[in-house]
Amino acid sequence: MEILKNLLQVKKIMALLFSIVFSILSLKGMISAEQFIVVFSCVTGYYFGQSSARQAISENNK
């Protein structure tokens, strides 16, 4: 149940959707590889940065 709850968080869904959409656009040639890398890096960097920060805060509070 906890795993399902974590998978359905809005930020995770948005990160996954952005990754899928920009992967498709890149494969179709609608955007360049450089544009794909920039957007993908920003989305994943933000997502993992937020997750790491939240985890560090929760560990410090224990």
Rank of each mutant, 00 (worst) to 15 (best):
I20P: 01
S23I: 09
I24D: 01
K12L: 11
L27E: 09
G29Y: 00
V38H: 04
F18K: 00
F18I: 13
I24P: 01
L17M: 13
N6K: 07
K11G: 14
S23G: 11
K28A: 13
L8K: 12
F40G: 02
A33P: 00
K11D: 15
M14L: 15
V10G: 04
S26V: 02
F18R: 00
L17F: 13
K11I: 04
I37H: 12
I31K: 05
L16N: 11
L8Y: 07
L27A: 07
A15R: 02
L7C: 07
S23F: 14
L7Q: 07
G29M: 01
I20S: 06
K12F: 10
V10W: 13
Q9D: 09
L25P: 01
S26G: 04
V10R: 09
M14A: 09
L8M: 13
I13H: 06
Q35R: 12
S23D: 03
G29N: 03
E34W: 04
K12P: 00
I24F: 06
K28S: 11
V21Q: 05
G29H: 01
I31Q: 06
S26C: 11
M14C: 04
V10N: 08
Q9S: 07
K28Y: 02
A33Y: 10
L16H: 08
E34L: 06
S32L: 00
A15G: 15
V39S: 05
F22V: 09
I31G: 01
M14Q: 09
A15N: 11
K11C: 01
F22Y: 15
A15Y: 01
A15T: 15
L27I: 06
I31T: 00
K12E: 05
F36E: 04
L8N: 13
L8E: 09
F22E: 02
F36R: 06
L16Y: 07
F18A: 10
N6I: 03
A15V: 12
L25Q: 05
M30R: 11
